[in-house]
């Protein structure tokens, strides 16, 4: 597909892309630090990943192969519309296959397939500030970051345990980056948290409405916050995937018929389809990989 001549490559003008790239470079230089940037109006509503879209627009080159996932799936309305947007405005090749993608924009998941050097993972972020839950004043949270006053993050986890008997935060689980900045990893399930650290790919986080960009360069140390007597656990539903039999992937519970029948399937559709194509069958496909 050729890009429409109405737009500059990847929609944003070069000046804007340079401004966003500067924010990205600053973010990479100070891992986990929220860099303000002048978010632009995008031809889609906030909540549709305008922050992620602007970051993708700033890093895409004509040679890239672009993938978009929404909660792990390539085929949701949101994922399809963002993919189509860049096919039109940048003319880049797209794919659903994680290993061949060079830029992956994601909402709420990290792909199961381990990422590699040279790949860029772009997160859509609704609320970049992990401290906001207990401290709504922006001036105060900025000060807390700059002075490393992070006791409040543990108050949040303390409240979780006192109310639920365990740390009930199951997504957007706060992390500490390179023993310095506390960061919200966006609403990924905490199952994905271990993949944030020591990752060969570049990870970029864009919050459009909140006008913040932050980043993790490759092989960054990322630690999930916890208590000595309530250690972090990357939990998931205790089932194998009904379709591909995988027992190491993050699962969605889906309703399969109108009598309330349910099954657990990989949230990462590309991973699941890849395993099925390789001959793996879960119990809901009558396979012998069934547990």
């Amino acid at each position: 597909m050729t890009p429409s001549s109405e737009y500059n490559f990847a929609y944003l003008d070069e000046q804007t892309k340079r401004m966003i790239r500067r924010a990205i470079l600053k973010g990479l230089a100070i891992p986990g630090y929220q860099v303000p940037f002048a978010s632009r109006e995008m031809p889609m509503p906030y909540g549709w990943g305008t922050g992620g879209v602007q970051v993708s627009a700033a890093v895409l080159t004509p040679d890239d192969r672009f993938k978009v996932i929404d909660q792990g799936a390539d085929d949701t309305t949101n994922a399809v519309s963002i993919r189509t947007f860049f096919e039109r405005t940048a003319g880049v090749a797209t794919t659903t296959a994680t290993p061949v993608a060079t830029v992956i924009q994601t909402r709420h998941r990290i792909p199961e397939e381990p990422l590699t050097e040279g790949q860029v993972l772009v997160y859509q972020v609704p609320i970049p500030e992990p401290l906001r839950f207990l401290e709504p004043r922006e001036s105060e949270t900025r000060k807390m970051h700059s002075l490393e006053e992070y006791g409040l993050m543990h108050v949040k986890l303390y409240e979780d345990i006192s109310r639920h008997g365990h740390i009930a935060t199951s997504y957007a689980y706060p992390v500490k980056v390179e023993a310095r900045y506390v960061m919200d990893p966006s609403p990924i399930p905490k199952f994905d948290n271990p993949k944030l650290g020591d990752c060969p790919a570049i990870q970029l986080f864009g919050a459009g409405r909140e006008q913040r960009i932050y980043a993790l360069p490759p092989y960054t140390q990322v630690v999930s916050l916890d208590f000595e007597d309530h250690p972090f656990e990357a939990s998931k539903a205790d089932h194998p995937c009904g379709l591909c039999g995988a027992d190491d992937s993050y699962l969605d519970e889906v309703i399969v018929d109108d009598t309330g029948g349910r099954m657990f399937v990989c949230s990462d559709t590309d991973y699941c389809e890849g395993r099925q194509a390789a001959g793996h069958r879960g119990k809901d496909l009558g396979g012998k990989d069934a547990a």
């Binding site: 006053e149 006791g151 543990h154 303390y158 208590f227 000595e228 007597d229």
Partner: peptide
């Protein structure tokens, strides 16, 4: 949590 905050602020990490 209110009483514990100062403890956590100075590094207490045992719930």
């Amino acid at each position: 949590g209110n009483v514990g905050e100062r403890l956590m602020a100075v590094g207490a990490r045992h719930y």
